[in-house]
Design a protein around this nucleic acid. Structure first.
Lengths: 207, 207
DNA sequence: CCTTGTGAAGTGGTTCACAGCT
DNA sequence: AGCTGTGAACCACTTCACAAGG
């Protein structure tokens, strides 16, 4: 076991976690072979990924499902409850706010923000929508560490700047534009059009 | 120029395209240095990625913005209009259906499906929601090639099977579960919780 | 003189193949 | 006997560094 996981392993750990959830109720052991088939990867890769977490398998048997789930969540920091804020409460923002697996997955929404005064006060997921001007104080008061951007593209950079200044340490950007953030603020791009365009490439190739 | 682009280059081409859109109106040339700064990468990587498309830059000058945009779109197959269907018209499905950059980005929605009879007939983006039972015929009639899954996790595999049987060649899955598809059907996972969990890892590390 | 395009070197991820345990 | 854990070989991507060319 090394104490540093490759970035790409970090990206696969959430997939293993989802596969564990999909196992038949009552299944107590799982082999690298079975997990690999479920995620669509090679068994050696699964074993190598999991070995970075420590030696939690049993030779000749496999991995204990609950034990493994615990250690993956541990490695990802999902045994905390990270406070997050969501900016832009259109259809996408509402979908995110209603996402009820937050609680089981290490996050909880502590603020919903929009710049439309019409929307302020509406409630989702037990939270009232607040005006974007309230964001800096809210992030500080509620110790939010992740900001989710679900605004139109033209507002995204401005919102990212505001989030960064307010003190979040990570940004998940759903707007179809590339945003910059100061060093120390980790950004992930999570947008629909990028994924679609990648699929288009493979369609195009075939034809 | 080779005729095979590395998979990871394919994933970055959409980002370059977005950066070209963000350039000040009227800017006619762009250097690898400037593009790199915008996407947050090394200039050599940008040049190498673009060199796979052919030698479309001018030494000492840079790349012609329009020319480059054309060739990236060409490579990604975005000079077609790929017909897509969206399954699961909750908040997320509506966000996708309303996504108005489709037309400029090589796609158009040709069907919206849900299993809730209450929703059937509602209109979004100029399309009426149809019942999921209509999906196979619709995919065939309208030549849809991409299926987007925006259902809850427990329905996702079933919808994926239905899409694959109906003849789509690519699936974009937003449900927080790992789905399988037969060989020949390309799947991309695009889910919120995976991205959040990756961010959680980096937060956890710092603290 | 400036910036592209690209071999070559460097880095990191994947797969193989088998020793090590149960 | 079976499955994990892991060095070693392999392969892919990134970065360097510079020749080529406007």
């Amino acid at each position: 076991m090394k104490n540093r996981l490759p970035g790409i392993t970090v990206q696969r750990l959430p997939l293993y976690l989802k596969c564990l959830d999909d196992l038949p109720a009552g299944q107590v052991q799982v082999s690298s072979e079975e997990l690999a088939a479920r995620v669509g990867l090679n068994a050696a890769m699964v074993r190598k990924d999991l070995s970075y977490l420590g030696s939690y398998g049993v030779r000749g048997v496999g991995y204990d499902v609950e034990h493994l789930r615990f250690h993956i969540k541990q490695a990802l920091g999902l045994n905390n409850k990270w406070p997050i804020v969501i900016v832009g409460i259109g259809n996408l923002g509402r979908a995110l706010a209603n996402f009820d697996r937050f609680s089981s997955e290490g996050f909880h929404a502590v603020g919903l923000f929009d710049n439309d005064p019409e929307k302020v006060g509406d409630r989702f997921d037990g939270l009232a929508i607040e005006h974007i001007d309230e964001l800096p104080a809210a992030v500080a008061d509620r110790s939010a560490v992740i900001g989710v951007i679900a605004t139109p593209a033209q507002a995204a950079q401005e919102v990212a700047d505001l989030l960064a200044r307010s003190g979040v340490r990570s940004i998940l950007n759903f707007a179809p534009t590339v945003i910059k953030a100061p060093p120390g603020v980790k950004v992930r791009q999570a947008d629909f059009s990028t994924e679609m365009q990648v699929l288009a490439f493979y369609l195009h190739q075939q034809s």
